[in-house]
Design a protein around this nucleic acid. Structure first.
Length: 321
DNA sequence: GACACTTGAGCGGTTACCTCA
DNA sequence: AGTGAGGTAACCGCTCAAGTG
């Protein structure tokens, strides 16, 4: 993730902060769909851009931040390759896994549009496991057959994962090569369509579910980091504006005090006044100009030092301008 | 060995779409 | 043809726990 400098942020601070919110329905983010509709009815609708309007500072100076999605992952959905449908068989009679497999089986049937259930499998017993969690759980656990085939040739990573069935689950650690490839892929697109997922999984000798989980985690952690960066930046913005606000308040107080002191000022001998060399108002216009200058000074919140104020407080009029 | 951090994975919730009665 | 319910898929956030330095 690229870090913006404070200056860069400042440029963007007027204020188009992207919080990098992306994603689908669940988390409240937004997903942009860009792929051809390979499978009608599976893609999700474009939703309107999610915008956050922050009114960070209720007191002046106020600041409204409209954050539009900087991170707009695209979700592309397509037909599953036939490979994935091979995950439906469950060879081991492990209740949770079988249940999961059953769910996964349903999953695949749906995806392929062709029923592929194995009536004799333990799934039938557990067919009531139809809730999302079960379905999901099983996409990762119930795909032993293909993996077993693959494992004959492949990475020990997957093998070790499968080996854990029965005993406690051992955590998979991706190899550097696998991580690198996933990273590379993530840079290209932060979401995968089923085909991409399948291809990547095959290339990495991982299960599609593992690739999917990796991408999910990656998106979440990217978003988290971006949020941290944005928070840090907003904090700096806030501090900066608070300082500015404090400074302006102080200046205002001083100007008010001066305004109260104006009668006294008016009694001062002209010799004590100084003239602004750039506009020469006092010199040319006399008292009237002085008043005009004073009025100008008090009227301009942004440039309070001009003419009157500065010349009153210092004998070096040139420094005032 | 204790500890903090990283990271793969599980779970529950949300949303959109599809099918069917 | 329109509609609501149920199912499914994909995503997210939160969380846990194994692995690592």
């Amino acid at each position: 993730m690229s870090k913006m400098s404070f200056e860069d942020h400042h440029q963007a601070c007027n204020i188009g902060l992207g919080l990098g919110i992306g994603g689908g329905g669940g988390g409240g983010g937004q997903v942009k769909f860009e792929t051809p509709r390979e499978k009608p009815g599976r893609q999700r609708n474009n939703k309107p851009s999610l915008k956050f309007d922050y009114d960070l500072f209720s007191s002046s100076p106020s600041m409204s931040i409209q954050a539009t999605s900087r991170l707009e992952p695209s979700l592309t959905l397509g037909l599953l390759s036939s490979d994935e449908s091979n995950y439906h068989q469950v060879n081991k009679v492990d209740v949770s896994k079988a249940a999961s497999a059953a769910a996964y089986d349903q999953d695949q049937s749906t995806d392929e549009g062709v029923p592929q259930r194995q009536a004799s499998s333990p799934h039938t017993v557990l067919s009531s496991f139809s809730n999302n969690a079960s379905v999901k759980r099983e996409r990762d656990l119930g795909c032993s057959e293909e993996m077993e085939v693959e494992n004959k040739v492949v990475s020990s990573r997957v093998i070790s994962d499968e080996d854990e069935e029965g005993s406690g689950r051992k955590k998979l650690r991706l190899t550097k090569e696998q991580s690198a490839l996933l990273e590379e892929s993530f840079k290209e697109h932060s979401t995968l369509n089923p085909k991409q997922k399948q291809a990547l999984a095959k290339q990495l000798n991982l299960r599609p579910r593992q690739v999917e989980v990796w991408f999910q985690n990656r998106r979440a952690r990217t978003k988290l980091k971006q949020t941290e960066v944005d928070c840090e930046y907003l904090k700096k913005c806030c501090e900066s504006l608070t300082d500015e606000n404090r400074r302006l308040h102080k200046e205002l107080q001083e100007l008010k005090a001066l305004k109260l002191a104006q009668p006294l000022y008016m009694q001062l001998p002209a010799a004590t006044l100084t003239m602004c060399p750039s506009c020469e108002r006092i010199g040319n216009g006399g008292v009237g100009d002085i008043q005009g200058s004073a009025k100008n000074a008090f009227g301009m919140a942004g440039k309070p030092h001009h003419h009157f104020y500065s010349s009153f407080t210092t004998t070096h009029s040139s420094a005032a301008c």
